[in-house]
Design a protein around this nucleic acid. Structure first.
Lengths: 238, 238
DNA sequence: GTCCATATAAATCTGCATATTTTTATGTCC
DNA sequence: GGACATAAAAATATGCAGATTTATATGGAC
């Protein structure tokens, strides 16, 4: 029995596709998003695209320039650091609350998510998408019980933005690390340890990724993406 | 010399107006937002309204029902509690960071914001809008230095949603309290005390508002707003 | 009452018209 | 010639008026 496909609007379809493309780094940072070409690509009218871009701009996944259209956000080392730092703050808090509210269902969800994650190898290109997905679900499972849909959503937004940086970095020399042992240690601490210990492991986990990408910036790998070439039509910022 | 008015789009104008109306409780919770009437009211096309509503739905200030339009979110006691709790978490963290990063400019901003707030009396209807604004700015000033635009934005979103609950409550018997002495104590603790003390005062400040509105729920004042009358066209939820 | 067909209302979408910005071309001064 | 200003042209974003699709309400058969 195939799942009944949810009734949806064209605008939402475009929104989802653009969202996913941006997070997966299909667009260069700072790249202008012209409405007509996008509409033509998807075979829809320009209004549907505008609506999708407007939604994305509210999530900061695209930047909006009044009367001048939309663009993918630029990337910057400082922005990356702040993003990770904020993510650590919020996820640490969420994890602390989730652990305080612990129940069987939550614990089982974590065990299950880790098991599913273990079935993918992040170094095999054909499994990569599945791994990313499972990885995301594992981290979500840790926080699921925190008691605040708001906090969960904020963590999700930050995770999306972090995923974009990570996707971009993959195209510039960053090999995704599997980190299965880290995830196992994290799960053990979450299920059996103190909130402080678990939080420290979580922060350490994200800090590794932080540093990997910091190095790419330091090596200048992202230079062509962060220094807008003068005279380019893409220089939208004022 | 009047400030040059920013070039803007019709869609953004509608967005700002709707946003402000929702936060100020001009719509009943759960009320359906029909596109045509709104477009007619503002004298714009339906697409501009759709775009505005789409943006608002990304901020959770309106709910989106695929193929069935948009509605103002309902209100619920549990939602209100979670909202305030989350706000306390995030603002406490932001305040802690802001205090750790303290500098002169930040301190002066707080002093100035409190002074400006003191010029308004929340119990005078004609000054109410000004007071709300100054109050919001005071709380923003406390966190301004936290070092994370993300965290600031999340706090802002939560503040907007809390403001909606408060606006609605004003129409159902809740008198806004001035709280000047609370704000002064808070400022003193922020400028001269420990982060723990300041955070506790902040939480206490929000908890008072929490309880006031909890009581209105308990008294059933909001009942007609939370119990969707069956058969009404507004029953959109599934 | 439940099911189904039909009518109505509403949301959604498209194609084009308009307004704005960006680019290109042109002219002027030094 | 190069730097700068100005004006025309092109590209692009924005907005509107219906056409189309979808959901909701209505009424009748069973």
């Amino acid at each position: 029995m195939a799942k009944v496909s949810e009734k949806t609007t064209l605008s939402t379809t475009v929104y989802q596709k653009l969202r996913s493309d941006i997070i997966q780094g299909e667009f260069r940072p700072g790249e202008k998003l012209r409405i007509e070409p996008i509409a033509a690509t998807y075979g829809v009218g320009s209004n549907a695209v505008r609506e999708a871009l407007s939604r994305l701009s509210a999530e900061r996944l695209v930047e909006r320039y009044e009367q001048r259209g939309f663009a993918v956000p630029a990337i910057a080392l400082d922005d990356w650091r702040v993003l990770v730092r904020t993510r650590c703050w919020l996820e640490t808090k969420a994890l602390e609350e989730a652990m305080a509210n612990r129940d069987e269902h939550w614990e089982e969800g974590i065990v299950l998510a880790l098991h599913r994650l273990s079935r993918f190898r992040s170094d095999r290109p054909e499994e990569r998408a599945g791994w990313e997905d499972a990885h995301r679900n594992f981290h979500r499972a840790l926080l699921a019980n925190c008691g605040s849909p708001w906090l969960l959503e904020f963590c999700d937004i930050l995770a999306d933005h972090a995923a974009r940086y990570i996707s971009i970095s993959h195209a510039y020399g960053n090999m995704p690390r599997n980190g299965q042992s880290e995830h196992e240690a994290l799960m053990k601490a979450v299920l059996n340890g103190t909130a402080a210990d678990a939080g420290a492991l979580l922060v350490a986990h994200y800090t590794k990724t932080l540093q990997t990408i910091e190095e790419l910036f330091a090596q200048g790998r992202f230079a062509p993406l962060t220094e807008p070439r003068s005279g380019r039509a893409e220089a939208l910022a004022d």
